[in-house]
Computed example of a mutant assay.
Amino acid sequence: MHICFLTNEFPKQGFPHGGIGSFVQTLATALVKKNIKVSVVGINYTNKDETEIIENVNVYRLKKSTIKGLSWYFNSKKINDKIIEIHKQDPIHIIESPELGLAFIKKILNIKYIIRLHGGHHFFAESENRKINKWKGFQEKRSFSKADAFIAVSQYVKTHTEKYLSYNNKTVAYISNPIDTDFFKPIIENQSEDKIVFAGTVCEKKGIRQLIQAFPMVKKEFRNVTLEIYGKDWFFPDDTSYIKMLKDKELIKLGDVTKSINFHGSTPYSEIPIAYSGASVCVFPSHMETQGLVAPEAMAMEKPVVFTKLGPGPEAIENYRTGLLCDPYNPKDIAEKIIWVLSNKEEAKEMGKKAREHVLTKYGLENIVCQNIDFYKM
């Protein structure tokens, strides 16, 4: 079997990537260990063509078009041409992409086309209180019409997406994103008693602003606590920095408390376990997620986690047993959950152990990989 993933986000040294890139890397490297051939095709971060083999995964990064107004056409053409080239050399059986990815892909006979619901344009528009962009909305609908099947990473993303888009009576499977529990495992020697850790893109929908607003309440109870923020910056349409906005509008209000808030910037995927390992508590108050990788990653390291009670949060965490669920729009509630963890160290430690057991069962890599293979073979 030969599977081809379409994504521009496959991790590349020195460049930021998102959750989709991490997911594809984890699943792809696990699939090749099952003797399944895997290719990844996407547009490069830099202005050149590159081909490399990473852990036996063939990664094709294509030179991006810079033709204003027509870059979508030329980028799609390059991806289609590369797919045809790869298919001639070694026939592809499955092509998988995120929601918009099939919009301009030319279908080839005997290839099965799958969309994995990572959270598309329609899905996130509601949580971000913005209108549907007509161009992106058109692409997403066109992409859905070409899919032969869908994979939802949570029950929530399935039901929420179908409010806006049709699955066209095609098969929809429910398969969680996998967590590599050998990579994300407890690291005892790096543990701390005074660190709150956030990881993820630093943007509004991840709840980082409310977490910063909650921090002074925690600091009042625990004087030595720090907030460690790991993740790439997000930029507004006018190219202004979200982190700069936070510093200008939120941190400026906090006085000396600001000295205890540290922005670490984009962090290589290989270093994320070290970031988690230093945490007393990991906090991810997202306004919206499809599944969320960071929460189960931290849980796999036996860390007490505060996650959002919205969306798929209750699918990931049993409140006060395998973690805590918070109202991501309420800084006071976020602070109270963090304070509970810092005040109840033994209970929090036991919660962390139960969290890892839960991740091993629900998100364990071996189990999830087998579920994917079974679905691909259907």
Rank of each mutant, 00 (worst) to 15 (best):
N8V: 10
E289S: 11
K68D: 11
E162H: 03
E9P: 04
T361L: 15
D248M: 06
N330T: 11
K332R: 14
I368N: 02
L293D: 00
Y174G: 09
I86M: 04
M299P: 00
A28N: 07
K220P: 03
Q89G: 07
I229T: 08
P268T: 12
K88Q: 15
L324V: 06
G265C: 11
L70R: 06
K112P: 01
G42F: 08
A298L: 07
Y60M: 04
H121E: 08
N47P: 01
H122D: 02
A152V: 07
I338V: 14
D180E: 12
P186V: 09
E140C: 05
E126F: 00
Q89N: 15
I179K: 03
K349T: 11
L102D: 02
K345Q: 13
T159A: 07
G323A: 14
E204P: 03
P268Y: 14
K244C: 12
D256R: 03
L31V: 09
L324R: 14
V359Y: 09
T308H: 01
H93I: 02
V294E: 00
F138R: 01
N344F: 14
E297C: 08
G352R: 13
Q191R: 14
R116N: 10
M245H: 08
I94R: 14
N8G: 07
M217F: 06
L324T: 07
Y242W: 07
K107A: 10
K259V: 01
Q371T: 09
D194C: 07
E271P: 01
T322N: 14
F124Y: 15
I94N: 14
N56T: 02
M299H: 07
H287Q: 04
P328A: 07
R116Q: 13
I67H: 09
R321P: 03
V157N: 00
I188N: 00
K253V: 10
K64D: 09
A173D: 12
D81W: 10
T290L: 03
R130H: 00
I187S: 09
Q139T: 05
L342N: 04
F124I: 02
I212R: 03
S270Q: 11
I334T: 01
I20V: 15
K303T: 05
T46L: 06
E162Y: 08
A275V: 08
I188E: 05
A279V: 04
G137Y: 09
E204C: 08
I334M: 02
E9G: 05
W340L: 13
Y363C: 08
N177K: 02
